[in-house]
Measured scan of single mutants.
Amino acid sequence: MASDGVVVEIGKVTGSVGTTVEIPVYFRGVPSKGIANCDFVFRYDPNVLEIIGIDPGDIIVDPNPTKSFDTAIYPDRKIIVFLFAEDSGTGAYAITKDGVFAKIRATVKSSAPGYITFDEVGGFADNDLVEQKVSFIDGGVNVGNATPTKGATPTNTATPTK
């Protein structure tokens, strides 16, 4: 695992066909100046998982989280898009600690492993708008004895992609 920078880890949970599971997305290594904004994309298989919603985690402190935390689910493109932009203008609602960034709610549709993997990152910046190093650890849903650990090695991303 990367020793510096922010680590975004997609949790690994267990479920069975027809059940709804909650998959946490963790941030670790949050910089001392916090995270003022970030955007990134995960990939998944809508034939295996139906993403039914995404909720902000406990490290989102904006009293009205829909102003700073936004997501979009595109089953036709097989992606989930995340956007966080601190909304106070003063840094008061920045992410300042490690913990759960988001909770992905999904219904298991198939007995195949439900991988959720890193696809791309736009950027991560602290309260001074300084770009942060970030790496990703894939996860998803274990169905029966299947284990979604494909790509469990962190993917280092030093520069934003478009």
Results as ranks from 00 to 15, higher is better:
residue 4 D to E: 03
residue 4 D to P: 07
residue 4 D to H: 04
residue 4 D to F: 14
residue 5 G to F: 06
residue 6 V to S: 03
residue 6 V to T: 07
residue 8 V to Q: 03
residue 8 V to P: 05
residue 8 V to Y: 00
residue 9 E to C: 05
residue 9 E to L: 08
residue 9 E to T: 07
residue 10 I to H: 09
residue 10 I to E: 05
residue 11 G to M: 04
residue 13 V to Y: 08
residue 13 V to D: 05
residue 14 T to S: 08
residue 16 S to Y: 06
residue 16 S to L: 11
residue 17 V to C: 05
residue 17 V to K: 11
residue 18 G to P: 12
residue 18 G to L: 08
residue 19 T to Y: 10
residue 19 T to E: 01
residue 19 T to K: 13
residue 19 T to I: 06
residue 20 T to P: 12
residue 20 T to Y: 11
residue 21 V to Y: 05
residue 21 V to W: 04
residue 22 E to M: 15
residue 22 E to S: 07
residue 22 E to V: 04
residue 22 E to D: 07
residue 23 I to P: 08
residue 24 P to I: 05
residue 25 V to Q: 03
residue 26 Y to T: 07
residue 26 Y to M: 15
residue 27 F to D: 11
residue 27 F to A: 06
residue 28 R to I: 08
residue 28 R to Q: 03
residue 28 R to E: 03
residue 29 G to A: 15
residue 29 G to F: 15
residue 30 V to F: 02
residue 30 V to S: 14
residue 31 P to T: 04
residue 31 P to G: 14
residue 31 P to D: 07
residue 32 S to L: 07
residue 33 K to Q: 03
residue 34 G to H: 04
residue 34 G to M: 14
residue 34 G to C: 02
residue 35 I to S: 03
residue 35 I to Y: 02
residue 35 I to E: 13
residue 35 I to V: 04
residue 36 A to W: 00
residue 36 A to L: 07
residue 36 A to Q: 01
residue 36 A to F: 00
residue 37 N to S: 12
residue 37 N to Q: 00
residue 37 N to G: 15
residue 37 N to E: 01
residue 37 N to K: 01
residue 38 C to Q: 01
residue 38 C to A: 08
residue 39 D to R: 00
residue 40 F to P: 00
residue 40 F to K: 02
residue 41 V to F: 01
residue 41 V to C: 02
residue 42 F to S: 07
residue 43 R to T: 06
residue 43 R to L: 09
residue 43 R to G: 11
residue 44 Y to N: 04
residue 44 Y to A: 11
residue 45 D to F: 12
residue 45 D to H: 07
residue 45 D to G: 13
residue 46 P to V: 06
residue 46 P to K: 11
residue 47 N to I: 04
residue 47 N to G: 13
residue 48 V to Y: 03
residue 48 V to H: 04
residue 48 V to S: 05
residue 48 V to K: 02
residue 49 L to P: 13
residue 49 L to E: 02
residue 49 L to D: 02
residue 49 L to H: 13
residue 50 E to L: 06
residue 51 I to N: 09
residue 51 I to V: 06
residue 51 I to F: 08
residue 51 I to T: 09
residue 51 I to C: 05
residue 52 I to D: 05
residue 52 I to Y: 10
residue 52 I to Q: 04
residue 52 I to A: 08
residue 53 G to M: 14
residue 53 G to R: 06
residue 54 I to H: 03
residue 54 I to E: 03
residue 55 D to F: 14
residue 55 D to S: 07
residue 55 D to Y: 04
residue 56 P to C: 05
residue 56 P to L: 11
residue 56 P to Q: 07
residue 57 G to H: 04
residue 57 G to Y: 14
residue 57 G to T: 09
residue 58 D to Q: 08
residue 58 D to F: 15
residue 58 D to E: 15
residue 59 I to T: 13
residue 59 I to D: 10
residue 59 I to G: 12
residue 60 I to F: 14
residue 60 I to N: 10
residue 61 V to C: 09
residue 61 V to T: 08
residue 61 V to M: 03
residue 61 V to W: 15
residue 61 V to G: 06
residue 62 D to C: 15
residue 63 P to K: 14
residue 63 P to T: 13
residue 63 P to W: 12
residue 63 P to Y: 13
residue 64 N to I: 05
residue 64 N to T: 11
residue 65 P to F: 13
residue 65 P to A: 11
residue 65 P to I: 06
residue 65 P to K: 04
residue 65 P to L: 13
residue 66 T to Y: 15
residue 66 T to W: 14
residue 66 T to A: 08
residue 67 K to M: 14
residue 67 K to G: 13
residue 68 S to K: 04
residue 68 S to I: 14
residue 69 F to C: 02
residue 69 F to R: 06
residue 69 F to L: 01
residue 70 D to G: 15
residue 70 D to A: 15
residue 70 D to E: 03
residue 70 D to F: 15
residue 70 D to R: 01
residue 71 T to L: 05
residue 71 T to F: 02
residue 71 T to I: 05
residue 71 T to M: 03
residue 72 A to V: 01
residue 72 A to W: 01
residue 73 I to F: 09
residue 73 I to R: 10
residue 73 I to T: 08
residue 73 I to W: 04
residue 73 I to K: 03
residue 73 I to D: 03
residue 73 I to E: 12
residue 73 I to S: 04
residue 74 Y to Q: 00
residue 74 Y to G: 00
residue 75 P to Q: 05
residue 75 P to R: 02
residue 75 P to G: 05
residue 75 P to W: 07
residue 76 D to I: 01
residue 76 D to M: 12
residue 76 D to Q: 04
residue 76 D to C: 01
residue 77 R to E: 03
residue 78 K to V: 03
residue 79 I to C: 02
residue 79 I to S: 01
residue 79 I to T: 01
residue 80 I to L: 04
residue 81 V to F: 01
residue 81 V to I: 10
residue 81 V to A: 02
residue 82 F to T: 01
residue 82 F to I: 02
residue 85 A to Q: 01
residue 85 A to F: 15
residue 85 A to T: 07
residue 86 E to F: 00
residue 86 E to L: 01
residue 86 E to R: 00
residue 88 S to H: 07
residue 88 S to Y: 13
residue 88 S to R: 07
residue 89 G to H: 01
residue 89 G to M: 03
residue 90 T to H: 08
residue 90 T to F: 15
residue 90 T to D: 13
residue 90 T to Q: 12
residue 90 T to E: 02
residue 90 T to G: 15
residue 91 G to S: 13
residue 91 G to V: 03
residue 91 G to F: 05
residue 93 Y to K: 15
residue 93 Y to Q: 14
residue 93 Y to D: 09
residue 93 Y to R: 15
residue 94 A to G: 13
residue 94 A to M: 08
residue 94 A to L: 04
residue 94 A to Q: 03
residue 95 I to K: 01
residue 96 T to K: 07
residue 97 K to Q: 08
residue 97 K to N: 05
residue 97 K to W: 15
residue 98 D to K: 15
residue 99 G to D: 13
residue 99 G to C: 06
residue 99 G to H: 05
residue 100 V to G: 05
residue 100 V to S: 13
residue 100 V to A: 11
residue 101 F to Y: 03
residue 101 F to K: 04
residue 101 F to V: 09
residue 102 A to L: 14
residue 102 A to V: 05
residue 103 K to L: 11
residue 103 K to H: 10
residue 103 K to S: 10
residue 104 I to Y: 14
residue 104 I to N: 01
residue 104 I to L: 12
residue 104 I to R: 01
residue 106 A to Q: 05
residue 107 T to Q: 09
residue 108 V to T: 11
residue 109 K to H: 09
residue 109 K to L: 08
residue 109 K to S: 08
residue 110 S to P: 12
residue 110 S to W: 11
residue 110 S to T: 11
residue 111 S to Y: 03
residue 111 S to E: 10
residue 112 A to N: 05
residue 112 A to F: 03
residue 112 A to Q: 11
residue 112 A to Y: 04
residue 113 P to N: 07
residue 113 P to Y: 15
residue 114 G to V: 13
residue 114 G to F: 07
residue 114 G to T: 09
residue 114 G to W: 04
residue 115 Y to A: 12
residue 117 T to W: 07
residue 119 D to G: 06
residue 119 D to K: 03
residue 120 E to D: 05
residue 120 E to P: 00
residue 120 E to M: 02
residue 120 E to T: 02
residue 120 E to Q: 03
residue 122 G to Q: 00
residue 122 G to Y: 00
residue 122 G to F: 00
residue 122 G to R: 00
residue 123 G to S: 01
residue 123 G to H: 00
residue 124 F to D: 00
residue 125 A to E: 01
residue 127 N to I: 02
residue 127 N to S: 02
residue 128 D to C: 04
residue 128 D to H: 07
residue 128 D to E: 03
residue 129 L to C: 02
residue 129 L to H: 02
residue 129 L to A: 02
residue 129 L to P: 01
residue 130 V to L: 07
residue 131 E to T: 05
residue 131 E to C: 01
residue 131 E to G: 06
residue 133 K to E: 05
residue 133 K to N: 08
residue 134 V to W: 00
residue 134 V to Q: 03
residue 135 S to R: 10
residue 135 S to I: 06
residue 136 F to T: 03
residue 136 F to M: 07
residue 136 F to K: 04
residue 137 I to S: 13
residue 137 I to Q: 13
residue 137 I to Y: 13
residue 138 D to Q: 13
residue 138 D to V: 06
residue 138 D to P: 11
residue 138 D to I: 05
residue 138 D to L: 09
residue 138 D to A: 11
residue 139 G to W: 10
residue 139 G to I: 02
residue 139 G to N: 15
residue 141 V to K: 13
residue 141 V to I: 14
residue 141 V to L: 13
residue 142 N to L: 12
residue 142 N to G: 08
residue 143 V to R: 09
residue 143 V to P: 12
residue 144 G to E: 08
residue 144 G to S: 12
residue 145 N to W: 12
residue 145 N to I: 14
residue 145 N to H: 13
residue 145 N to M: 07
residue 146 A to D: 11
residue 146 A to E: 13
residue 147 T to A: 12
residue 147 T to S: 09
residue 147 T to L: 13
residue 148 P to W: 03
residue 148 P to Y: 03
residue 148 P to Q: 03
residue 148 P to D: 04
residue 149 T to I: 07
residue 149 T to Q: 09
residue 150 K to W: 15
residue 150 K to Q: 13
residue 150 K to V: 09
residue 151 G to I: 07
residue 151 G to W: 11
residue 152 A to D: 09
residue 153 T to F: 15
residue 153 T to Y: 06
residue 154 P to E: 12
residue 155 T to S: 12
residue 155 T to N: 09
residue 156 N to M: 06
residue 156 N to S: 13
residue 156 N to F: 13
residue 156 N to T: 10
residue 157 T to I: 10
residue 157 T to F: 10
residue 158 A to S: 12
residue 158 A to G: 13
residue 159 T to F: 14
residue 159 T to P: 12
residue 160 P to G: 12
residue 160 P to V: 12
residue 161 T to V: 10
residue 161 T to W: 14
residue 161 T to I: 10
residue 162 K to T: 04
